[in-house]
């Protein structure tokens, strides 16, 4: 037990100047911790106010449901549906790469691998997490995209050099460590008594994992997936470098598509006036991104807490 505030009153100094100094430092510390709260509100309000400016100029309903996005100077239209669709498709591709590989890697590391092997593999996966995203973007644009075009040509398909597939796959590789490390922590903290009970009943190792360990760890694994999804939605550099700029409402993953983050970067890098609808549209898209990732994060925190309460783990 730590000595908390109530008891610490007993250790107050009787010297007035010392006490004054103590109080000053305490308030300084409180001010510092308020800054983190201010940052979140700063992000929320700075995006919200500019987004409201945008919706004063353009229709909110058309923004959510319109299928035309053309932020030119004349006759500009801001229907973000194709952008949301592109983001969704690329996220889906990324998750279909990251989810199986991430979860099965976590299963291998926590259930099968010896400590020695685990100590060697974990840092390797952490390298994947430490590579800057701009590097992944270059890899997607220069190596993976041409590779996909060549492969598709050889089987008679036509693929774009900015295909959603290339950026999705590379984004999936980037997300593997996010999913594997959290899932690994969760699976490792499932109590060993569950495993031993199942093995004693004569179940094989894989049956134990499938029908006992994974169901127990499910809330944590769901949390890991949601974090992965929110990471994929907010990922910028890979899609800016490897995906297209054209809002394209299609399910063909070999065509080029655009995402929310690409359009934000595109709207803010140009030289337009700051109060033009084209620039302000970036903040409207940013608001959508903020709301969705915040909700995903809150749900994932909820699942983690549920898991912690169920098995009384404190280390997560």
């Amino acid at each position: 037990m730590k000595i908390k505030n109530k008891s610490f009153r007993a250790f107050e100094s009787k010297n007035r100047t010392t006490q004054l100094k103590e109080d000053a430092i305490r308030y300084l510390l409180i001010v510092a911790s308020v800054i983190s709260v201010l940052t979140t509100f700063g992000i929320l309000f700075s995006i919200l106010f500019e987004a409201i400016e945008f919706f004063k100029l353009r229709s909110f309903v058309y923004f959510l449901t319109g299928t035309q996005w053309s932020p030119g100077i004349e006759d500009s239209k801001f229907g973000a549906l194709p952008i949301f669709a592109g983001t969704f498709v690329i996220t889906l591709i990324a998750m279909s790469v990251a989810l199986p590989i991430g979860i099965f890697s976590a299963i291998y590391m926590s259930e099968y691998a010896s400590d020695k092997v685990r100590d060697k593999i974990k840092p390797l996966l952490e390298i994947l997490a430490g590579i800057p995203t701009v590097v992944y973007g270059f890899f997607a644009a220069i190596t993976v995209a041409p590779l996909i075009v060549t492969i598709c040509e050889s089987i008679g398909l036509e693929a774009s050099f900015n295909s959603a597939l290339a950026s999705g796959v590379v984004m999936g590789i980037m997300i593997i460590p996010v999913i594997s490390s959290l899932s690994d922590d969760v699976i490792s903290s499932v109590p060993d008594s569950l495993r031993k009970g199942s093995l004693a009943l004569g179940l094989t190792m894989s049956e134990t994992i499938k029908s006992v360990v994974l169901p127990a760890a499910l809330p944590g694994i769901i949390a890991a997936c949601l974090l992965g999804v929110s990471k994929a939605l907010g990922e910028t550099m890979i899609v800016v470098m490897a995906a297209g700029l054209r809002p394209n409402l299609t399910m063909n993953i070999l065509e080029d598509m655009t995402t929310v983050t690409v359009r934000i970067v595109d709207a803010l890098v140009g030289d337009q006036a700051f109060d033009s609808p084209a620039t302000l549209s970036a903040f409207a898209l940013g608001l959508a991104l903020f709301v969705v990732t915040l909700i995903l994060n809150i749900i994932s925190v909820y699942f983690i807490r549920k898991f912690k309460e169920k098995y009384k783990v404190n280390s997560l």
Binding site: I43, S46, I47, G234, T236, L294, I298
Partner: peptide, 21 residues
């Protein structure tokens, strides 16, 4: 709760904050 949320906000939104503020 704030610190946890701050860690999960996509980095590009910090850019929007920097630009606006």
């Amino acid at each position: 709760v704030n610190i946890n949320n701050l860690a999960a906000i996509p980095s590009i939104l910090f850019g929007l904050l920097g630009l606006a503020i």
